[in-house]
Design a protein around this nucleic acid. Sequence first.
DNA 1: TATTGTTATACTCTATAACTATA
DNA 2: TATAGTTATAGAGTATAACAATA
Lengths: 160, 160
Amino acid sequence: MATKIKRTRKRRALELFDSTLDYGLLSELTGFAIKRANVIDFASFGNTLDDKTVTPLRFSMLNLIGCNPGLQQVQLADALGLSRSATTVTIDYWDERGCVERRSDPADRRSYGIYLTDEGRTRLDRIAGLVAAHDKKFTENLTRAELVELRRLLAKLYMR
Amino acid sequence: MATKIKRTRKRRALELFDSTLDYGLLSELTGFAIKRANVIDFASFGNTLDDKTVTPLRFSMLNLIGCNPGLQQVQLADALGLSRSATTVTIDYWDERGCVERRSDPADRRSYGIYLTDEGRTRLDRIAGLVAAHDKKFTENLTRAELVELRRLLAKLYMR
DNA sequence: TATTGTTATACTCTATAACTATA
DNA sequence: TATAGTTATAGAGTATAACAATA
């Protein structure tokens, strides 16, 4: 009997460009090649964690809070390139799960300092281990030297 | 007087990592570096076109239809890594604007062949020119050799 | 007046599931 | 039974605008 292959998101991502179609301009765009790498990375990110609601963005936020305790929400927004409202909902996500807390700042009562709770620290440490392993797997086809070169070239794209 | 700088999406994207914050694990992740490049690319994509509703995904779809007239929706879905439902709504977008048409396939009345209209061809040609220029600008900091190398390294990430 | 944060609202992207028509 | 396409629904990501509290 023919095996039924489930068309998961990851499978779809990997099959991109596997066909015999003409991609025209798309195949020449570096932006599209980067997007494609990003799609593959994010698709397998989900399989790394048991809780599918922990997305790359949410992880990034928790990680940043863990590394820089006490930042204001505007600072977190700037650091991740988010609007204030997007930042609010992302922090809400972790707040609702008891992983971060908003402490009022007595010196400026408009703002809060954002801190990890003990629960948040435990969660972050666990997730970070899985994410690091995921990224290692993602880049396993590249040698150490190639990886360094890739990072250098990507960095040149940001320079303005 | 101090100039008020509007915090556009593109500006936010470019400022990522400009701060003195500790990004911890994030700064070591190749996946994050790729995401960042992708964010910058997409943020400026919007500024390239006057019609902000023409997104990278929608452009990709129109381009693919233009290069491969008569494909079924399932084939377009596979080619872009989309679910059938996501494909439907993306084609709907162009259909509503008179740029593509669904022609019933007499040989298999469940499916359609998707084709560009004259209007779609005109639009595609115009947009493609802008997108090509956008990608050239995006990669302007890299030499020709560096660009080739970047594409080679990205391709290694997809290999499985 | 300007800034911090929240809420309301909206649009894009994307999926799964249920459904219709057809194979 | 399986496949092509649509529709309903939902969650994630993201923005702008309006608002309250505070500076």
